[in-house]
Design a protein around this nucleic acid. Sequence first.
DNA 1: TTTTGACTTGTCAATATCTGTCTAATGTAA
DNA 2: TTACATTAGACAGATATTGACAAGTCAAAA
Lengths: 97, 97
Amino acid sequence: MTFGEYIREIREEQQLLLREVASQMNIDTALLSKIERGTRMARKEQAEALAKVLKQNKNELLQFWMADKIVFMLKDEKNITEILKIVEQKINRLSKK
Amino acid sequence: MTFGEYIREIREEQQLLLREVASQMNIDTALLSKIERGTRMARKEQAEALAKVLKQNKNELLQFWMADKIVFMLKDEKNITEILKIVEQKINRLSKK
DNA sequence: TTTTGACTTGTCAATATCTGTCTAATGTAA
DNA sequence: TTACATTAGACAGATATTGACAAGTCAAAA
């Protein structure tokens, strides 16, 4: 599930309209629509605003948002697993220092 | 080890000058210097050119390059491990489809 | 059928970021 | 000093991102 699908689900559970949420975020309805549909990526501040409006845990939502960005970067790669292994090695070495 | 450190190491092993490699890549020496020192990120085509000039396996080097980009995105995050877990879950679901 | 309301799409200008080069600086060995 | 390799900083041009607007679709209500 993408970030957009996720927040759409939450918004619909809470029976909120795009226009209501967008208004509280101070953005255009069209932009929020695009974010939910994945044709635009939310900015960090927008992800934070969404957490607030939808009453979600901010850090959790931001993690989900960041994961989405990474998946987006990787989605057309051939050896995703291999790349992620390298990432983990690099991260492990970083954290040791 | 970062992408830049890695290619610098290889270049020095081969006793090539920045200017020689940069020239073969059709970029300014200063730019290659920055890439090696990590103050600039190589573009994909530049990573490919480096593989060629330094006679490295192109796919391997590109994987390393991509991993570097991801590490760069993650480096200031708090819960990197958690984020990577989410990424892996998302990727697994993607590949099942 | 017409209207209404929710949502979506395409386009565009403004802005932000990225890129590569140039010049000047630094370092170093002869 | 001179010569050469590398690095730093600043800049303009290229690209990408952003948010808004207007027009579109669609379904349900009137």
